[in-house]
Design a protein around this nucleic acid. Structure first.
Lengths: 320, 320
DNA sequence: ATCTGGATTGCAAGCGCTTACATCGACTAC
DNA sequence: GTAGTCGATGTAAGCGCTTGCAATCCAGAT
């Protein structure tokens, strides 16, 4: 197994290969003096191989700087050790943060994370799912629950497992992890009411294709209705996820007469924008207007005064 | 090409397959009544195929919901239409933003972006590069220039193209895109000096393995030295990328006597933290202390007063 | 001495796709 | 009419790896 004379010859072979091409399983096998099957076993299930043999193979692997060819492996084994995640956007720190954590975890487990973004657009998400499917991902992480049944059907047909993140309902038919946005929003609304506010505005995220935004809006609506102070439709504004949009929405709410005394925002970024605009308008927060956010992202700590935020139901969610 | 009786039989075949497995090129070929080669050509270079044939194939593809098998394609063609990007962290909005843009561009071109993070850790980056190499990415996007020569050697040996982003030097031996951090920082320093500041502190990013942070620190150092007011080493603090760390660093600088009248920060996040701490310490910005940032990220707009920031040399960089 | 069974390894058949090369008509040019 | 072209398609040889199965060897049981 790699005697000296033989080793020389193989050295030559090795040099020849590494010069231009990448080494293959067969090269490793030749160098180690075993069959490709054995090398493969060392790589995938070392326990199947006698220790000496294994060590010889490992040595050869090192020496050649061998790394398995992904395509070959995927073709033969029909798995990719890859999971795909599709998030709305990386610019939302809350998703970026979650991805980061997920990725670290997966990497440690030898799985690669393939990330795509959908820009909060269902059609784009469907396309991304297709792309990832054609890349044979072994599973999916998707945000929220709202999507075309056809998409779910396709996933099931291919029997690719998936889990939904960020939304949660007791009777969700899929595997999902998250908190109950509706309940949390309702909670916020009730608390704002208890604080004495009676004229309350809301800046919601764009609800189309975004069940979280919708759940939060409805939660607030239901909460206030339950308190006997139903949300005035004229005091509801939808705004895309961006500081500037939040500011603009706040501007519209502030021009309502009588002015709302509290503004509930669908997330922290909108809240930040709203706060900015209030400040610009010369209003004091919270003396003149109260503002609440949602998500508790880092950015929020920049604000002065700090945001009151709708806390997720479970502490771990703070890291998602 | 798909007469009626034949179509029936094939329907059966089709159902059988789609029930459990995914359709293959061969299935499409059979349904369309052509060889697999032709189907492949339709998929990869439609111009090679007569229009009628092409349409028949396309119909079959739709009907079966066929998507090519990634592994098979990668194996046969030895490319993956994938580029890998390794960034320090997604939590830095500036990278997240850049990725987002890059990804949109690549997706439009039919290329998939595979993202990994290194946590500003060279060794981790090297590992990630290996992982991506073994996944046969067709190219790399890497941040900055500082890394083990061995890594560059490996990339060249494999002849995988790569480009470096975010750093730029006239005599950088690799392909790089970015702005000259050193020059920009120098510029900031000189401007701060011209503003009349003589006692100037700096909160730099962690320089180890981060050439941008180092270039900025050295730029400031050189700039001030050129003005005849060399940076006092006691007024230099390194801090990791985080608001809290910036605040803490500012705290240390503020306790120096005499207190610096200006603090130059290695990036906007550190600046945000510094500003926060100043405010907490009851100092007015910029009356009592001036603070400058770097990068011009969105977060900065939240601050009151707004940050003076070291603007990148080229407008396009604002999107990186 | 023979048999049984477990441990170790090799053999070889694919996995689904691309692509060089061969084939085949239908034209064009002489 | 014959040869040369060209466009459209098929044939089949892999790409690098995994894995079911068979072969071998050895220890212990009979």
């Amino acid at each position: 197994m790699g005697g000296d004379g033989k080793a020389r010859l193989q050295e030559v072979d090795r040099v020849k290969r590494t010069a231009s091409q990448r080494p293959s399983l067969a090269d490793v096998a030749r160098l180690a003096g075993v069959s490709t099957a054995t090398v493969s076993r060392v790589l995938n299930d070392p326990a199947l191989v006698r220790r000496e043999t294994r060590e010889a193979v490992e040595r050869a692997v090192d020496e050649l700087g061998y790394t398995p060819h992904f395509g070959g492996r995927a073709l033969a084994s029909n798995r990719t050790d890859t999971v795909g995640a599709i998030i709305p956007t990386m610019e939302n720190a809350i998703f970026a943060r979650g991805l980061q954590a997920l990725q670290e975890e997966l990497t440690a487990a030898g799985v690669t994370l393939l990330v795509s973004t959908s820009n909060y657009n269902a059609e784009q998400e469907a396309r991304q799912i297709n792309t990832l499917l054609s890349r044979n991902v072994d599973g999916f992480i998707l945000i929220g629950e709202a999507r075309d049944p056809e998409v779910y059907a396709r996933l099931e047909r291919r029997s690719v497992p998936f889990i939904l993140v960020w939304s949660w309902r007791a009777d969700c038919p899929w595997t999902c992890v998250g908190f109950d946005n509706h309940a949390a929003a309702r909670d916020v609304a009730e608390r704002v009411f208890e604080f004495g506010h009676r004229r309350i505005g809301m800046i919601a995220g764009v609800c189309e294709g975004n069940d979280r935004a919708l759940a939060r809006l409805n939660g607030v609506r239901d909460g206030l209705a339950a308190c006997g102070a139903p949300l005035d439709p004229r005091l509801v504004v939808e705004a895309p996820y961006a500081i500037e949009a939040g500011a603009e929405a706040a501007g519209r709410l502030l021009s309502a007469r009588p002015r709302p005394t509290a503004i509930i925002c669908g997330n922290d970024v909108l809240a930040a924008g709203a706060m900015l605009r209030c400040r610009e308008a010369g209003l004091r927060v919270p003396e003149d207007v109260s503002i609440t956010g949602f998500d508790d992202i880092d950015v929020a700590t920049l604000l002065d005064p700090q945001l009151a935020t709708g806390a997720p139901a479970h502490p771990s969610m703070r890291h998602m």
